[in-house]
Amino acid sequence: MKKMGGFFAITMALAFAVGMALPSAATAKMVKKVDNLIVAVDQSGSMSENYADTGQKKIEMATDMISKFDGNVPELGYMSGLYLFSPFEEVTALETYQNNSLSSAAASVDTGIGLGGRYTKLGNDLQEIDSVLEGLSGKTALVIFTDGDSNMGADAVAEAQALYDKYGANLCIHAVSLADSNYGQKVIDEIRGLSDCSVSADGNSLASSAGMAQFAQNVLFDEVSTAAPAPAPAPVMKKEVITFNLLFGFDKADITDDMIPVLEQVQMILEEDPAAKFVVAGHTDSVGSELYNQGLSERRAGAVSNWLIGNGVPANRLQVVGYGETMPKFDNNAEEGRTLNRRVEIMTK
C-alpha cells in the first residue's frame, strides 16, 4: 500500500513537471474586418454555359462555391444577404449571418437557366445593389460570382468606381471569376484594380478547401493571436546632447564676457568624461538664405570650440560642424520655435 502511494506520488509529480515544461498553445481569435457580407450571383444567360472543360455550368459552380464559402464564414455578427444579378433579384433579405444561411439561400437559386434573352447588365446590377448598400452601416464586403461578360446597359467598371467614390473605404468589391473569355476577364480585372482591398479568386483558386478558407479569411476577418504579447524591447539609450543659446548678436559669432559663465559650465560637463569626444554643432533658424545660415552656424560653432580649446579642452576631442538651417529641431513656423532653433549643441560621439 505504501509502495503504491509512493508510486502514485512520483507519477503525479512527473506529470506536473511535464505539463509545466510544455509550452502552452497560443490560440487565435477571429476579428472581423467588415460588418456586412453581400453575396451576388450572376444569373445571366452566359452563366448557363459550361465553365471551361469542367462539364459543369458556371451558375452551378457559383452556387457550389457559395456553399463552400459559407462553411468558412465565422459567426461574427455580419449582416448578410444573397442577391442575383442580371436580372437583379433578392434571394434572402439582410439578416445577421448564421451558419449555413448562405448555403440554404444558394440552394434555392434556379440553376436551370437558359441562354436566350438573359443579357449581362453588370453595370445596371451595380446600380441596383447601391440601394442595398445605402441601408448598411460600417464596412461591406460585396462578393460577386460572375463571368464578367457585361454586354448591355451601364458600364460595369464605371459603376463599380461610382460605388467606391460613394462609399470609399467602407466598401470592397471582390469579384470571383468564372470568366471564359478575355473580355469577361478584362471586366473583372478592371473592377478588381479599382481598389487595393479587392481579393482575387477564381474557379481554380477556390477549388481546394485551403484556398476557399484563405479567401474567406482575406475577405472577412483577421486572426489575432491571444498569446501573451512579447514584452516591448527596452528603448535604446542615445548619446547625451548638451544644448545652450549664447544669445549671439545679430550676424555675430564673437564670444563676449556674458557668454563665459555658460561656456564654463559646458567645459565642466565635458571634463566629467575626459576620454569622450564631441561634435560642436551650430544651428540657425530658417530666416535668411541657406548659404548665409550655413556660414553663420559654422562661425558660431567654431567660436565655441576655440574658446573651449583655449581653456584647456584638447582640440582632438572636438569636431566642429555647422548645420545652418538644415537640421531644425523645432517648428520654424512659430517665433518660439525659431528662437529654440538658434542654438549650439554638443553631442557625444
Partner: peptide, 10 residues
C-alpha cells in the same frame, strides 16, 4: 529611444 539632454541657461 531615449536621448539624455543637458540644457544650460544663464
Amino acid at each position: 529611444s531615449v536621448i539624455p539632454n543637458k540644457h544650460i541657461f544663464s
